[in-house]
Design a binder for these strands. Structure first.
Lengths: 213, 213
DNA sequence: GTCTATAGCTGGATAGAC
DNA sequence: GTCTATCCAGCTATAGAC
């Protein structure tokens, strides 16, 4: 890498143009779908022409890769933010809620990050790295809160992913499944550590809404 | 509809050509991915030319629709097959295993049927109908086996779908998540009907493999 | 770095002869 | 119903002037 000092601001400027394009790309795919991204649209919305995009990215997949990288970083930052709960159970609920919030707030991002649906696209190791780290971080948290067995960690991820997936697929914008997170976490805790108590759940349909969503 | 009797075999012949094309289409997408289907490939593999496809289908989406319809029918047939268990718990396990088997045996079919990932494609009501019926059938079974609350049914679907989804996404061809079905079902039963007993699970990692998979 | 112009390709779909 | 030939639209990507 050239680390000449004088032209540093130039690099910064280039970086910001780079980032702007990715901004626009994200706003585009959130409207048209992941596969609906075209360089023409992207350029037009960014106020440049299609060939100019190639001044910043070598290919369309390089754009997807940068989008993936940003999403992975956002994911890492989101999940690593400190949790201000004392109770382990509340902590697990908070983790699940945060994950769910992250996914449902941008289904397209969820699709790019966690579902492999784009043909001919594989994220580069560099873009992938932050996501790996974040997932490992979550797993470590699980261990801290008593879920040490791999089997249980797998059930945990399946459970949370299942809630998110059903929410996005079958009730987009709603909360039919996300509102079941607390109850599901309690179910999981009761199963994985029967000694520790999980909170009781009454059988009435609705809980006070808006708590820690 | 013309219901002239004499040319009935002609209709049958046409139907079989129709079906053959869908056969080929399925074998193609299972290799190239759902979005990778092209009329040229399809025609070549079917031993005809691209325009001839239009003798049977009005558009590419009509092909997707027919594929969806077949998948939905297969799903309905699979799930409606009689369950030969006495124990309700075993029955739930059997349902989950059957669903899981259906999905993991053809991830592409799962993708078309349950995830909305194809842009500009919506299944027609006719193609959709069998899937709806099958899902209602499953839900009725759940009620029969004691899962009557809507909340619990939603948790059930999330749990099973989550296991399948993780299996397909993160361990295709393996059984890292599908082997957790029994344990997950027991967790669910314990939660949804604490009075009825679910089978015990020891904490050792592996269970005897190959049982009712 | 940004443009205009365009290459080069692939895809869905149609026309019309047989 | 099946073909050949072809249209037309859309895309990614490159060439080359400025």
């Amino acid at each position: 890498m050239k680390t000449k000092e004088p032209a540093d601001w130039r690099e910064a400027r280039r970086r910001s143009a780079h980032d702007t394009i990715i901004d626009v790309a994200w706003s585009l795919v959130s409207e048209e779908g992941l596969a609906g991204l075209t360089l023409r649209d992207l350029a037009r919305r960014a106020g440049i022409t299609a060939p100019t995009v190639y001044a910043y990215f070598n290919s369309k997949n390089a754009i997807y890769d940068a989008m993936f990288g940003r999403a992975a970083t956002e994911f890492a930052l989101t999940m690593a933010q400190p949790y201000e709960c004392d109770d382990p159970r509340d902590q697990l609920v908070a983790i699940a809620n945060r994950f769910s919030q992250f996914c449902t707030s941008s289904p397209t991002r969820y699709q790019l990050l966690f579902q492999r649906t784009l043909p001919d696209f594989e994220p580069s190791p560099e873009s992938f790295a932050p996501a790996i780290l974040a997932l490992e971080g979550v797993r470590e948290l699980l261990v801290v809160y008593g879920i040490s067995e791999a089997r249980h960690a797998d059930i945990w991820t399946a459970l949370i992913v299942g809630l998110v997936d059903q929410q996005i697929s079958n009730d987009p914008g709603g909360d039919r499944w996300t509102r079941l997170i607390e109850e599901s976490v309690d179910m999981f805790i009761t199963h994985s550590q029967p000694n520790r108590g999980s909170r009781k759940h009454d059988s009435r349909p609705a809980q006070t809404k808006g708590i820690s969503t």
